[in-house]
């Protein structure tokens, strides 16, 4: 693998991570992901696009049609009660 291919793979991994629904807690709020900060603007926009796709795929496969974002929010609600 060339250095450039390695860089592209690393960038794509950051995009994929950012497109996921996991976000850390930060001072009692939903915090931004470190991977998002490591991306350039084009990568962030691509991650946003993939997040939308993930959301529809997840909702389509979940028995109650819940995406990971919806499920994560429900988990936080249960935790904040």
């Amino acid at each position: 693998m060339t250095e450039r291919q390695g860089d592209e793979r690393a960038r794509d991994a950051l995009i994929e991570e950012t497109a996921g629904a996991y976000r850390p807690d930060r001072r009692g709020q939903v915090g931004s992901l470190a991977a998002w900060h490591d991306l350039d603007e084009a990568g962030r926009i691509e991650a946003f696009r993939r997040a939308g796709e993930n959301c529809r795929l997840e909702a389509a496969t979940h028995p109650d049609r819940r995406s990971s974002t919806v499920a994560a929010v429900l988990n936080r609600i249960a935790g904040r009660r």
């Binding site: 629904a21 976000r23 992901l33 946003f48 529809r56 819940r66």
Partner: peptide, 26 residues
């Protein structure tokens, strides 16, 4: 939320390069 998530997410599209939209959405 199941029906609101999509439009809410799309409403943040103009800011996707500037803020972590997933964190804001949740």
């Amino acid at each position: 939320m199941i029906e609101a998530e999509g439009p809410l997410r799309r409403s943040l599209a103009p800011l996707a390069a500037k803020v972590d939209a997933e964190a804001v959405l949740q």
